[in-house]
Simulated scan of single mutants.
Amino acid sequence: MPEKIIFLVGPTGVGKTSLSLSLATAIDAQIVSMDSMQVYRGMDIGTAKATKEERGDLVHYLLDVVDPGDRFTAEDYQGLAYQAIREIRKEKKVPLFVGGTGLYMDAILHDFQFGGLNINEDLRKKLHADYDREGGQVLLDRLAEVDPVTARTLFPGDRKKIIRALEIFYTTGKPMSEKKQEEAFSNRWDPLIFILEKDRQDLYQAINNRVLSMVDEGLVEENRRLREEGWPRKSQAASAIGYQEVGWYFRGLVTKKEMVRLIQQFSRNYAKRQVTWFKRYKEAYHFRLNEDRDREEALETMVELAKNFLEKESTK
């Protein structure tokens, strides 16, 4: 019998964290973070990680699981997420996945089988050399020519993801996006998906304000501490939005004002790609959160839908 799992997803800045805490409390769930940067220890302000005070007694999984200098992949996430589901089930609770990393969501729902593609070390070394010599934008443009769907989800700083996508295309002759579509939807899970949305201008304003709050809360100081602890400048985590730009500020490449503007811009661009990604889930329930009352009504509806969902036998 497929296991029931619930997803609460949406773009950065839409208000997932506060709503997830209320929903988890109402349906007796435990939260599994679904954020590619919140897995890193010490990266709290720039990833908008819920504080210990905000979390309260609610159990959260997949926060602070690796050091900032470590590499962390979708395969790593999938394995830890499956483990979290087992632990939550032992506690007779409901797994509630919360975040905005669409690839992680797909890895679970489609039960991606990683490792099916042999690594071509020579090709990988060449692509890394190309990245060092020509820069991330050039390789991202190259990827856009052969796999525009995947390219639209990436930044020039996503070194490993860009190289992996090119590697898949050059090895198989098929774009990574097509390879994913060939994966069967997993029968392991019976999912209920809630997608949060805002009107574009409201979302962008929320993102701009959040970036300003992050700076006020100590984003620059958090970056400085991480670097003093020996955080590698070329690590996967260092390319994250809010960390890459502060690094440029430290190196004198941009002013503090320009740093803030770039974080806001890149965050808005990322949110736009997230919105596009989640639109593919036609079976999901979509909630628009433009006013405070929208949040209250959405929570009430989600609680009702979730309770009905959990009470019913799976139809799969």
Rank of each mutant, 00 (worst) to 15 (best):
Ala151Phe: 00
Ala48Gly: 08
Lys282Pro: 02
Arg233Leu: 13
Glu297Val: 10
Phe309Glu: 10
Val275Pro: 04
Gln205Lys: 13
Glu258Phe: 10
Arg233Thr: 13
Gly79Ala: 14
Gly56Ser: 09
Glu182Arg: 09
Asp190Phe: 14
Phe114Glu: 09
Val246Ile: 05
Phe266Asp: 08
Val254Ala: 06
Arg159Cys: 01
Gln38His: 13
Arg86Val: 09
Lys272Cys: 12
Val211Gln: 01
Thr276Tyr: 14
Gln265Gly: 02
Met1Arg: 12
Arg164Ile: 10
Arg295Cys: 14
Lys126Pro: 00
Val260Gly: 06
Glu229Gly: 00
Asp122Ile: 12
Tyr61Glu: 05
Asp35Gly: 02
Leu58His: 12
Asn118Asp: 12
Tyr281Ser: 07
Gln113Leu: 08
Ile45Thr: 07
Phe278Gly: 06
Ser20Pro: 06
Thr255Cys: 08
Asn308Lys: 14
Tyr204Phe: 15
Ala107Pro: 03
Asp57Ile: 09
Ala240His: 02
Gly99Cys: 02
Pro2Arg: 10
Ala24Asn: 07
Asp147Arg: 02
Asp67Lys: 15
Gly100Ile: 01
Tyr131Leu: 04
Ala74Gln: 05
Phe97Asp: 06
Asp202Cys: 10
Glu311Ser: 14
Val14Ser: 06
Gln205Leu: 12
Glu183Thr: 09
Lys160Glu: 07
Ile45Gly: 01
Arg288Thr: 08
Val39His: 03
His110Arg: 11
Arg225Leu: 08
Arg133Ala: 14
Glu283Val: 10
Lys180Pro: 01
Leu305Trp: 00
Ile5Val: 10
Pro2Lys: 11
Met1Trp: 11
Lys93Ile: 01
Asp70Pro: 04
Gly15Val: 04
Gly10Asp: 13
Leu219Glu: 04
Lys174Tyr: 12
Ser33Val: 06
Gln265Thr: 07
Ala271Pro: 08
Met259Cys: 15
Thr301Asp: 15
Glu304Gly: 14
Val9Trp: 03
Lys180Asn: 11
Lys282Ala: 09
Thr25Leu: 08
